[in-house]
Design a protein around this nucleic acid. Structure first.
Lengths: 111, 111
DNA sequence: AAAATAGTTAAGTGATCACTTCAGTATTCC
DNA sequence: GGAATACTGAAGTGATCACTTAACTATTTT
C-alpha cells in the first residue's frame, strides 16, 4: 500500500489542466469527435489532439476512429479509481477524528 | 459551470506527484512534522518543504508552527472538492448510460 | 478528379517542475 | 554559551509541459 500505481499519477496529472477537465466534462455528457471537443477551446486543433493523448494514456478517455472521425468517450472505471484514492484518505482522516472525539468524551466522563 | 475554480487545478496538480500523495497518505493517518513527512521519502528536506508548499497552496494541507516544529494536517474539505468534481462527471456519464439503456429496452418492447 | 473535412505528426519555444546544494535562521538541549 | 535540531530560502539545472506553426494523410463531398 506504500506505492500506488503510476496510473494515478497520469490520471491526476490529466485532470490538473482546465482544458482537459473541460474535455472530460463535455464527454461526461456523451461521446464527441475531436473537433467537437476542440470547438469551445481557444487553442489549435493540434493542441487539443495532444491533450486528448494525455487523457487517453491516463486511461480516463478511450477513442475509436471510424472513417475520418475519431469518437471519444469517457472511461468511468478510471474516474472511479481516482475518486477511490481520494475517498480512502478522507475517510481515514475522518475516522481518526471520530476516534479522537470518542476519546475526549471518555476522559471527560471520568471527571 | 463552464469554468471551475483554479483551486481544482492546484489540487489535482498537487495529487499528481507520488511523493505528495505519499505525504497526504501519511497525513490522513494523523498530523506530522516536516521531518516526519520527509523520513520515508528519498529526497532532501528542502525538496519536501517545496512539495509541502504545493500541498499548502492547493488547500489540501494546512500547517502551523510551534517553536521550531511545523505541524501539518490534512484539510478534508479540499479533498472533498476534488472528490466532488470527479463524482459529478462519473454520475453524469452513468445517468446517461441508464437513460440510453431505458431507451433501448423501450424500442425493444415495441417489436 | 478537385476541394473540403477531420485529424495526425514533427519540430520548436518559453514556462513550469522536481529536484539539488549551500548558506542561512530560529529554537531547544546540554 | 555552544552544539544539535528543525526547518527556510535562494540559486541553479535538466526534464517535462502547453502550446504554436507548418506540412502531411486519409476520407468524404461535389
Amino acid at each position: 500500500m506504500l506505492h500506488d500505481p503510476p496510473q494515478l499519477d497520469l490520471m491526476f496529472q490529466a485532470l490538473a489542466d482546465p482544458a482537459r477537465r473541460q474535455m472530460v466534462e463535455r464527454l461526461s455528457r456523451g461521446p464527441a469527435s475531436v473537433s467537437q471537443l476542440a470547438e469551445p477551446l481557444a487553442m489549435s486543433l493540434s493542441a487539443v489532439v495532444q491533450h486528448l493523448a494525455v487523457l487517453e494514456t491516463s486511461g480516463l478517455v478511450s477513442t475509436e476512429k471510424l472513417g475520418r472521425v475519431r469518437t471519444c468517450r469517457i472511461e468511468p472505471n478510471a474516474l472511479r479509481a481516482a475518486e477511490h484514492w481520494i475517498n480512502e484518505r478522507r475517510l481515514a482522516w475522518e475516522r481518526r477524528l471520530d476516534r479522537l472525539g470518542d476519546f475526549l468524551t471518555d476522559i471527560n466522563d471520568q471527571t
